[in-house]
C-alpha cells in the first residue's frame, strides 16, 4: 500500500495541501484538547493560579492538595469501587448475553428468528423517558430501591449489543460452524469453544462501549441510590460539586479522576474502540 493510493490529492500542490490540512486539523485538535488539558492541569494548580488572569496553563508550583482534598473528603476509593462494580458487572453480563443471542439470531435457524431480531431492533426506538417512570415504580414494588439490583438486573440484555454481534456474525462463513457440527459437537459447545473466540473483536468493542456507558451513567443511579455510601463516581462528584461549587481545584481533580479509568481503557484498546464505533455506523 503506497501513500499515493491513500491520498486523493497527489499533484504538485499536494505537499502544500497536506501542510494546510495539518494546520487546520491541529488547530481543531488544540481546541478539542484544551478543556481536557485545562481540567488536568487545574487539578494540580495552587488556589491563586486557578483564578489567575491571564490564565495559567501549567502550574509553576504543582500541588497534590486538590487531589488529596477530594480523595479525603469523598472517600474516593469507596466510590471508585462502587463504580467498578456498577460498570464491570453489567458489561460482563451484556457481553455474554449479546454473544449468545447475536450468534443464535445470525446462525441458528428457528421459526420466528426474524421476528425476534426485528423486535430487538424496534426496542432501540423506544426513548428512555418512556420507561423511566414505570420502571421506577416497579423498583418500589420489588423493594429494589437504593440497591444495585435495580441498576444491574433490568439491564441484562442490550439491543445494541445483540445487533452488533449479529452483524458481525454475518461475516463469518457457515462452513466453519458446519465443521464443528459434523464432528457431532453440541450447539452449546460449538458456541463456547468455537464461536466465542471468533467474536473477540466485536466483543472487545462492545465491552469498551458498555463499560464507558455504565461508568458514565447518571440519571438512573441518581434516581435509585439514596445512601451516599452506595454512590457511583459521577453521583459523588456531582454531589460534591453542588456543595463546593467554588472550589474549582478540587472539583477539577474529581472530574479528572473520574475520567481517568475510561481514558486508560481507551488507550489500551484503541483499535477495537475505533472499529467498534465504525460497526455501529454500518447500517442506519
Amino acid at each position: 500500500m503506497t501513500d499515493r493510493a491513500l491520498a486523493p490529492t497527489k499533484t504538485s500542490r499536494g505537499a502544500w495541501g497536506q501542510f494546510a490540512l495539518y494546520i487546520v486539523l491541529t488547530v481543531g485538535a488544540i481546541i478539542s484538547f484544551a478543556p481536557f488539558f485545562w481540567m488536568i492541569s487545574s487539578a494540580f494548580k495552587q488556589p491563586a493560579e486557578i483564578r489567575a488572569y491571564p490564565p495559567v496553563w501549567i502550574s509553576r508550583n504543582p500541588t497534590m492538595d486538590n487531589i488529596i482534598k477530594i480523595w479525603g473528603e469523598l472517600d474516593f476509593s469507596l466510590y471508585f469501587r462502587n463504580s467498578l462494580i456498577l460498570s464491570i458487572t453489567p458489561t460482563v453480563i451484556i457481553l455474554f448475553t449479546s454473544a449468545l443471542v447475536g450468534y443464535v439470531l445470525a446462525k441458528v435457524r428457528f421459526p420466528g428468528s426474524n421476528i425476534v431480531f426485528l423486535s430487538v431492533l424496534a426496542t432501540m426506538m423506544i426513548p428512555y423517558p418512556v420507561t423511566l417512570i414505570p420502571r421506577f415504580q416497579m423498583m418500589i414494588w420489588f423493594g429494589w430501591m437504593d440497591s444495585y439490583r435495580a441498576i444491574i438486573i433490568p439491564g441484562f440484555y442490550s439491543s445494541f449489543g445483540i445487533f452488533l454481534v449479529r452483524q458481525f456474525m454475518d461475516s463469518i462463513p457457515d462452513d466453519l460452524l458446519d465443521a464443528g457440527r459434523i464432528d457431532g459437537a453440541a450447539e452449546l459447545r460449538i458456541f463456547l469453544q468455537l464461536i466465542l473466540p471468533l467474536m473477540k473483536p466485536v466483543l472487545a468493542a462492545l465491552g469498551i462501549f458498555q463499560f464507558m456507558w455504565s461508568w458514565n451513567d447518571f440519571l438512573w443511579p441518581l434516581l435509585i441510590l439514596n445512601t451516599q455510601d452506595k454512590f457511583s463516581l459521577p453521583l459523588a462528584i456531582a454531589a460534591f460539586t453542588s456543595e463546593n461549587i467554588v472550589d474549582y481545584g478540587a472539583t477539577m481533580a474529581g472530574a479528572a479522576i473520574s475520567v481517568a479509568p475510561v481514558l486508560i481503557v481507551f488507550l489500551f484498546l484503541q483499535k477495537y474502540f475505533v472499529s467498534g464505533v465504525a460497526m455501529t455506523g454500518i447500517k442506519g
Binding site: 484538547f33 478543556p35 464507558m212 462528584i237 474549582y248 472530574a255 475510561v262 475505533v274
Partner: peptide
C-alpha cells in the same frame, strides 16, 4: 488526529459539565 478528537467522547456528562461550567 482521530484519537484526539475522540477523547471528549469518553468524558462523562458530569465531568464535562464541571469542566465547561468553569
Amino acid at each position: 488526529y482521530r484519537s484526539i478528537y475522540y477523547l471528549p467522547v469518553l468524558t462523562s456528562t458530569v465531568a464535562a459539565a464541571i469542566m465547561w461550567n468553569w
